[in-house]
Computed example of a mutant assay.
Amino acid sequence: MIQPRKRRSINQVKEEISVQVLRERLPEQWVIHDYGADYGIDCVIELFDFVEGDATVAETLGENIFVQLKGSSSISYGTRRAYHRGNVAKGPLAESREQYDDIPVAKFQLEMSEILTVQAMGVAVPVLLVLVDTITREAYFICLNDYIDKVIIPEDPMYCEKGHKTINIPLANKISLHEDHLVPLRAYGKRSKMYGAFGTFRYQHDEIRRAAGRMLVAENMPRENVIAMIKNFASVSLRLDIWKGHEFWKPMAWSHADLSDILENIQSGFATENFDGLLEYCDVHVWRRLANLSNMYEELVREWFMPTSLAVLCSYPSPPPIEVPAGAGTAESNAI
């Protein structure tokens, strides 16, 4: 009996093409780490930036994106009808059937076990589903953590009883070397750092309010100690590795300027001469704005790049000219 030679399945070919396409569409200094055995995560993208003034050496940013990488030669393209709705972070889904956006999407069925694995990881660790069309060699992404909370759960509360879910990936979520297409990846890379910063900002705000006598349990501190505390808070916050890479999100730039202004006023002696004004400014303006970043992140940022009307309005720098590939279906409702 003649023994068969080594063989490759078509799925192995598609997997190799998917990795090649993803590699081609990421900056050369970024690294793709194989995650090993497939337990729902296929690879990890580690973000690097070139050392300032030297484009021959890159250093890690300490930022990672987990990826479920899927390749297909028969992707179903179509449109998803996204009705205007209320804030799903505050309550049950409430839609307006008179207002909607038809969003060009690529559709992919994901096993429920993979969805539940991502959900168990929490929202601070970004997991992207990256879908590669092995025919056109285009790659599209969707953040599964956010998709679960902002799309699946509001629209299908009994989703856990299903064997799989169809994930709708906006075609505007294309991965390429164009800087606009790298913006979301850079933002996802910073996600864990952002959640750490949110806790820091809320703690600092509470302590400033406590020093101002605005907490249930107040703390009588000498003025010089309060000023020293505020100076330390501002310095600690400015050292957080969250400010660079968020230039596209204006609240970050505003808060960075506020913190720099606080340090300048303290170092110039102006804060000592205007202590009450400093304390008021820090409480009701600077740190209230910093503490509110977490609220905006939950309500707005986590809905960026979703197949929803709010995402259409606030995710992209300009309305992207998206064409649905030939053979795509017609618009359909949110129900899947």
Rank of each mutant, 00 (worst) to 15 (best):
K244C: 07
A228D: 07
K190I: 11
R202M: 06
E95R: 08
V183I: 10
T79C: 13
P325A: 11
L278M: 15
R186G: 04
V105G: 01
T200R: 06
V19A: 09
V118R: 12
I75R: 10
N173C: 09
A197C: 12
L61F: 11
Y140G: 04
L131Y: 00
N87H: 11
V44M: 12
A106V: 01
E138F: 01
T200E: 02
V284R: 04
L177R: 07
P251G: 07
I2R: 15
D261E: 12
I227V: 08
V21L: 11
M229F: 11
L238D: 01
S294F: 02
A234H: 02
L279S: 09
C282G: 08
A311V: 05
S255W: 11
R209P: 06
F48G: 10
S72Y: 06
L185S: 11
D49N: 12
P104D: 03
C282R: 05
L47E: 07
C282P: 06
N225S: 14
A257W: 06
H246L: 15
I152V: 09
S315D: 10
D146K: 00
G53C: 02
T200A: 11
G78F: 00
M252Y: 15
I148R: 03
V31Y: 03
V88H: 03
H285G: 11
P154F: 03
E114L: 04
Y35R: 10
T200H: 04
F48W: 14
M306I: 09
I2T: 14
M296R: 05
E299F: 06
D34I: 01
V217F: 09
V118K: 02
N334Q: 12
E179M: 10
S268K: 00
G269E: 06
D34W: 03
D241M: 13
T166Y: 05
R137K: 14
A106H: 01
P154M: 05
K250Q: 10
L278F: 10
E95T: 13
V125F: 04
A55V: 13
P319T: 09
I2S: 13
M194S: 05
I148S: 06
Q29M: 15
